[in-house]
Amino acid sequence: MKYAILVNEGPYQHQASDTAYQFCKAAIERGHEVFRAFFYHDGVHNGSRFPVPPQDDRNIPVQWSELAAAHDIDLVVCIAAAQRRGILDEGEAQRQGKDGDNIAPGFRISGLGQLIEAGIQCDRLLVFGD
């Protein structure tokens, strides 16, 4: 089965990101494909490279980056939601006159068309969070 994932909550405000991540790991271990994870609303905070959780806690953005690198998962952050919340890649930072970017490795910024495409390309689109 080919899955697309929609994450609507931030990494530390809600269990949705953890649950989505664990689902992706389990699905891959069982031979399924995770085509794309799309991060929307507060879920875009999963794509920031700046969180510094305590040493005994999990670093959810790093976990997503490592999973994507290991299994070729497309991690897409919604551009409109990201800009509102200060998540910028290098190109967006330059366009907006900012002096730096903060997107985590393996994530990219794009529009809602990527979510629609994922829904069309995949067998299932699973939504995590409100």
Rank of each mutant, 00 (worst) to 15 (best):
H71S: 13
L126H: 08
D57C: 13
Q114S: 06
V62Q: 15
D74F: 05
A70V: 03
G91N: 13
S48P: 01
K25W: 00
E90T: 15
V76S: 04
D42G: 02
P54K: 14
V52I: 12
G10L: 03
Q13L: 10
E92Y: 12
Q63M: 15
R36I: 04
K98N: 11
G10E: 03
N102G: 09
I120E: 01
D42M: 02
V7Y: 04
A68I: 02
H32K: 11
A118V: 06
F50C: 01
G86Q: 02
I87E: 09
V7G: 07
M1K: 13
Q83H: 15
Y21G: 05
I116F: 03
S110W: 02
E29I: 00
C78F: 07
A118L: 09
A37E: 05
G47A: 15
A104N: 12
L6E: 13
E117Q: 14
K98A: 12
Q55I: 06
A68E: 10
A70R: 11
F35L: 10
N59G: 02
I103W: 07
E117W: 11
Q55L: 11
L115C: 12
A80R: 06
D18S: 12
E117F: 09
P11C: 07
Q96F: 13
V34D: 09
R30D: 05
D101Q: 13
Q13M: 09
R30Q: 15
K25F: 00
V77E: 04
A82G: 05
G97H: 02
F38E: 07
A80L: 06
R85Q: 11
T19M: 07
E9L: 01
A4L: 04
S65A: 15
P105A: 14
E117V: 03
E117G: 05
D130R: 14
G47H: 01
W64S: 04
G119D: 05
D130C: 01
C122G: 02
I60Q: 11
G91S: 13
M1G: 11
A27I: 08
F39S: 02
D42F: 00
R36P: 05
A118R: 05
V127P: 00
I116T: 14
M1A: 14
Y12Q: 09
K98M: 13
A26M: 09
K25D: 00
G129H: 04
D123I: 05
A118W: 11
H32Y: 05
D99F: 09
Q114E: 15
Q83T: 14
H41M: 14
L88R: 03
N59L: 07
I79D: 06
H14P: 02
R30Y: 05
Q114P: 00
I73C: 08
P53G: 09
G86Y: 03
G10H: 04
R95D: 14
R30N: 15
P61C: 11
R58L: 13
P61F: 06
V127Q: 11
A93N: 12
G119P: 10
P51L: 06
A20L: 08
S48E: 00
R124Q: 14
